[in-house]
Design a protein around this nucleic acid. Structure first.
Lengths: 254, 254
DNA sequence: CTTTTTGTTTGACATGGATCACAACCCGCC
DNA sequence: GGCGGGTTGTGATCCATGTCAAACAAAAAG
């Protein structure tokens, strides 16, 4: 079977960390059989418990991974956009997806089947190592998340998030939020109301927010405020949102 | 180099999920060069940021992984005992340990060097698959942790923990807590005081606690109370604490 | 342009859990 | 036995964040 991916899709695939450093023929083998599909916002891609027979790469839009408590409360554990893969870990034990996945903003996705992928994995040691590195990154991300959630108040988490959006070569910047505030709030483990209040509170340290544009007067100060004592320049998003322009100048604020 | 491990150590190694299904010669290759060492409670094994040039297997005692906020608050992300490995993930990127590790109760550990392990990994595809499964398990664990922490109050987390200690073949049991209440409290993301109150609250659902022995009158009811709607029989501890007797009859309460 | 829908902010309020303080208890030790 | 250090339980208080309700803004639909 020879499925032809769009030019754009192929280019995006090359940016996926999971596939980095793989030879062209391996890459072709992988993408061969992958499906390119579009989904509207709100679409449920899979639910926790379902057999994990596939994984995804995002071409555009946003996808969130989350768990839901019986009383309807949800807890977001991941938020992915262009150039990122998700749900690839669940294939390695027979326990099914540990989370739900829903499209948070209209998205185009590549769908890879587990069968195909796992047989490729058998042959390709480099791919296995990439996977290990990827899962390790995910682990680091979750650990950090857990730490932030228990040890830092809302405004510090928000501060850390904003810092992660800032370019590192200047000390003042205007960046635009990569998506809905509602989404970001969930991503930071708080309700939208708390997000709003946290943002208001950051005015004290020179952060002003208008629409989805955020201006930071003194990035170093903000970083200090976020108690990012650790050097970790780790982005707060699972992997760098590779293609999302970060400075406001790169993309007008809607 | 031929390091001789104790009979007891070799036996423990066979129970480690990470090594399950490996051939005898591979196992020998791995353990060869591993160091067997004893540590007193309180010993810091490594700190976040240090280069991850080794990983551990627990022979006895308890080890906790945790992060520390600048103001001294700590957040436990893992708690390991006999038959479990830890810190094996950090070797796959060059970012150093993401957490601190300290001995929570006098322990004997096996120390494996990264060099040795990684070269073995090069040759052995099965080991790579074990690693993938292991990291996936860790991911599931952290995700669950995150979910519980944000969506469940202290007493429900405690209830879930107690359920995870119970045998599944009866509906009433007396189990003994595997370690200090202080440790368990940390493990459940709460302060010891909150732990105590949570335990008091569980009396209402037929859970009584004396010393480190817990009696559960109706396990099914407790499970329902814990809102463990999900079938997941997942133990709350990272991996089953393989050798820790769970029923009080198996080991008298101190 | 008006209406509807969706996203964001603000206020008043309730509450879970942290914090501080201290009593009770268990343990090993002299 | 009594003494001192670590562990555990309880009570009083405080604060951050969730909750509910409503005003507001912007965008989409008609």
């Amino acid at each position: 079977m020879k499925t032809l991916l769009s030019r754009e899709a192929l280019q995006a695939v090359r940016q996926v960390p999971l596939f980095s450093g793989l030879g062209d023929e391996t890459l072709a083998l992988l993408t061969d059989g992958a499906l390119e599909r579009s989904y509207r916002r709100g679409t449920l891609l899979f639910s926790a418990g379902e057999p994990a027979d596939r994984f995804y790469v995002v071409l555009s839009g946003w996808v969130k991974l989350f768990r839901e408590s019986p009383d309807g409360n949800e807890c977001m554990v991941g938020l992915f956009t262009r150039g990122e893969s998700f749900a690839e870990a669940a294939m390695f034990d027979r326990l099914g997806f540990p989370v739900n996945a829903a499209v948070a903003e209209d998205a185009r996705l590549l769908v890879f089947t587990a069968d195909h992928f796992l047989t490729t994995l058998e042959r390709n040691h480099g791919l296995a190592l990439n996977l290990l590195a990827n899962l390790t990154g995910m682990l680091r991300y979750l650990i950090r998340q857990l730490d932030q959630l228990t040890n830092q108040p809302t405004y510090q988490r928000l501060a850390a998030f904003i810092v992660s959006l800032c370019p590192c070569d200047t000390n003042q910047a205007t960046v635009c939020l990569p998506c809905d505030k509602l989404l970001i709030a969930g991503r930071l483990g708080m309700k939208p109301e708390s997000f709003s209040r946290a943002m208001a509170r950051l005015k004290e340290v020179g952060v002003s927010c208008e629409r989805n544009c955020v201006h930071i007067e003194d990035i170093a100060a903000l970083r200090r405020f976020a108690n990012t004592t650790e050097e970790e320049p780790l982005t707060v998003l699972p992997c760098a949102a590779l293609d999302v322009p970060r400075t406001a100048t790169a993309r007008p604020c809607r």
